[in-house]
Design a binder for these strands. Structure first.
Lengths: 197, 197
DNA sequence: AGGAACAGAATGAACGTTCAGTCCGATACA
DNA sequence: TGTATCGGACTGAACGTTCATTCTGTTCCT
């Protein structure tokens, strides 16, 4: 058997372990996710996990990396770098918000991992760099065309990210707070009004 | 000795335990805060904690209640219910944001407890009701005067809360992301532009 | 057969909680 | 006043549990 299919086979089991960990952490948090239960959900023995990850900490870090990659790819779905500033803004953050809404597990997981000391702030920054690259171009264009407030990129991005993340969280955890349906476009308008010049 | 001073004596030690727990959770998270270390920081024996709190879970819940009370009182500092809509908005959220900035421990603590399964979503909602009451009045007035977008209160509040919270977090954890000073008023303007009609 | 992948019992560390004992101020009694 | 007794706040070693990790025997593939 060649190297590639060995890798693939390994990936499958590795992926199962990552998925199991993701489910458990998203549901109850890191501390309610013992390795024995990860093994059970991944349909393998506890020892097998250690063939793919050196420690639980590394498992969690790899999971975080995987998660940010998936998130970034969702955000960039159908993203047209040559489109207008406003359109790009709506596309990127619309993708982001829809992803958070449609994958409650990933949203909860992101929340748990964002507050976990198993992942350093440096790792978090590194993981988000790809996303930030697209955003930087978008914001630079916007400022040049005087469509967007002249504030640091990090401020504009952080505030938008924070508001949409919090909205998705509340919608999932306390839906009764929102008796009327909430239109995603209303939220994007709100974010755009916030940053527009 | 009368009842009141007995209560006070108890409060002091109880308070010490709450403070110690707050420090430890804010620094490293719930799971790095063993009762033995809480006891050490509170200068008491491990058993003593159980004279004031039935379980660790109850200790954490009481801490959360205490924290939300402190936060609410900061937000309502010098708050003039009869002032104009915009002024009230800036006053409330300015208070909130300054509190988050000036008390990094409380901000980190709020983040940890907001992601902890030790506290139910119901408890979280209950704790924030006092704050929401003032905000509801403010937003109702604003909508009547057509100063504020006609969206559900929960949406307007959640988005503002989310963006300011995330900003305070990033400023504390990744200050190098913000080489230039960030003016609180810029952030409040951004939030106001978001929700204004 | 031989070796890699695997499962799950075994191990030891860390934790929340308990409890037998200590300490100390208050009270009763002389 | 001086002494004995009490009660409850307090302590920290000990207990049982849970967990991450390791170890050992088994299975599967070539």
């Amino acid at each position: 058997m060649n190297v590639q299919s060995d890798t693939r086979r390994n990936m499958d089991k590795r992926q199962q372990i990552l998925e199991a960990t993701a489910d458990l952490i998203a549901e109850q948090g890191l501390h309610s996710c013992p390795m024995a239960m990860v093994a059970k959900h991944a349909c393998c023995g506890a020892g097998t996990i250690y063939r793919y990850f050196e420690t639980k900490e590394e498992l969690v870090q790899q999971l975080f990396l995987h998660l940010t990659e998936v998130m970034a790819s969702h955000c960039m779905n159908d993203y047209d770098e040559s489109a207008g500033v406003k359109l790009r803004f709506y596309s990127f953050w619309g993708n982001f918000y829809r992803y958070m809404l449609e994958k409650p597990r990933d949203r909860a997981l992101m929340e748990q991992l964002s507050a976990s000391p198993a992942i350093s702030e440096l790792q978090r920054e590194e993981a988000l760099k790809p996303m930030n690259k697209a955003l930087t171009m978008l914001l630079t264009d916007g400022k040049q065309q005087q469509l967007i407030k002249n504030l640091p990129d990090a401020v504009l991005t952080t505030m938008t990210f924070g508001s949409l993340t919090m909205m998705a969280k509340k919608l999932q955890l306390s839906p009764q707070m929102f008796p009327q349906a909430v239109q995603p476009d209303d939220l994007l308008n709100l974010c755009w009004d916030a940053i527009k010049a």
